[in-house]
Design a protein around this nucleic acid. Structure first.
Lengths: 234, 234
DNA sequence: CCGTGCCGTAATCAGGCTGTAACAGTGATA
DNA sequence: TATCACTGTTACAGCCTGATTACGGCACGG
């Protein structure tokens, strides 16, 4: 489910937009003040941000700049919602990094349609990740190797899921902690080592392929070779 | 350079938009009729399409549908330009697959800004650096020469990455230490020599091209000649 | 209340990466 | 040609990195 952060100080408008977004299946979190908006975005890592420009205690443009300056969430689409309709305002908003600029008053259904644009064309992520004879089912939170089911703990599962989602890509411990443990983690990076070990013990019993690759000096990656279709049969 | 197909029947507006797009460095091709617009898109494979909805001989919505149905160009962004401002028109346009919907009259500079949005955020540097038959993949932390994979240590990899990222540029040992070893390094500059040697041994086995060039008195650089496309055949 | 299992940390160990020193080779300059 | 500065090459000791084990804390369910 897509998560949207909504920053809008007008309570009625906030409710209206929230209601309609949720009706469309989006998860909405938000604030009716500008203060703390940036922190909320950093914390929630939304898939999209809807931002009022004129806020009583803050400036939407500043929040936008802040988002674009935070590596984690810099690429999230931002839609400005504002009564400022002048040419200059529009240009400034768009050039500051907004992905859309909607002038009030607006049609709610148009806003929804414009929100949806940003989620269109995303390839529906397969619910099942496969690599060689290893199979991870996101929906059922299960992992199978060949026919046998493998029991993983929640953390182990998320770690494996993340690694399998981008086979071959090398992730630093830092990145893995961010992705699997969350940003407000208070965990040593050595913890990753231990979990990689535990995963290996479970999914790589004697003689099994080396699913997880250690990349000295960089981190870990899921072995890409195993993700390919079996090459040629001899 | 980005190529834009512009379909707009009003000659004045066509010229105005074309002029402003070209001033921004876009390549503009287009038609002032709807007929043949789809063919033109299929032929030109534009990076973006600007489409008037109400055309004398055709319907922009149909053209949009046609584009989305042509695998080659189905993912090209489409911006509608139209006088139809009703809520229904907007929704229909956006849900048909348009990426933006601009109502006439509009500010040209806003149109330009909205065009630029679609080219923003394209990753500036490819994750893969190539020079001749040498290929360095940043994401996978791997280096290939021809078909064979080359195993590098972390420091070797970072050094090669830095050199390959700016082919032809000569870096002093000082600069390389800063870039590869970090600013708080406590390392002799002769160390660079040793790592260049180790790199050469790994990526330049007997008879291979001289990827890394020593510049006496200055430092090292990656051989630019190898980065170019094979010159001309004699 | 207790037991079980998950979670994160710390300590230990082996292997190989790393950086330095020393020496050899090369090119520039007079 | 002789000399010097710069670069190429080798070898080695130290230490960093990652693997592994063990342990205490914590939450949860019985």
């Amino acid at each position: 489910m897509k998560k949207i952060v909504l920053i809008e100080d007008d309570a009625d408008l906030y409710s209206l937009v929230q209601y309609n977004l949720e009706k469309e299946g989006f998860q909405v979190v938000g604030l009716q003040t500008g203060k703390g908006a940036l922190d909320m975005c950093r914390r929630e890592r939304p898939d999209l941000v809807i931002l009022d420009v004129m806020l009583p205690d803050s400036d939407g443009l500043e929040i936008c700049k802040g988002i674009r300056a935070s590596p984690d969430i810099a690429t999230s689409p931002i839609i400005f919602l504002t009564a400022r309709a002048s040419e200059t305002d529009r240009i400034v908003g768009l050039e500051l990094g907004a992905n859309d600029y909607i002038v009030k008053p607006f049609f709610v259904r148009e806003l929804i349609a414009r929100v949806k644009i940003h989620f269109r064309g995303e390839k529906p992520v397969s619910k099942v990740l496969r690599s060689g004879d290893l199979e991870l089912d996101r929906a059922h939170c299960t992992v199978k190797r060949g026919t046998g089911e493998i029991t993983l703990t929640a953390t182990e599962f998320r770690l494996l899921e993340y690694l399998m989602s981008r086979p071959g890509v090398v992730f630093s411990r830092e990145q893995l902690l961010d992705a699997v443990w969350g940003h407000d983690r208070a965990v040593t990076d050595r913890t990753v080592d231990v979990y990689v070990l535990r995963l290996r013990q479970k999914i790589e019993p004697e003689g099994a392929p080396a699913y997880i690759r250690s990349v000295r000096g960089f981190g870990y990656s899921f072995n890409q070779e195993l993700s390919r279709e079996p090459a040629e049969v001899k």
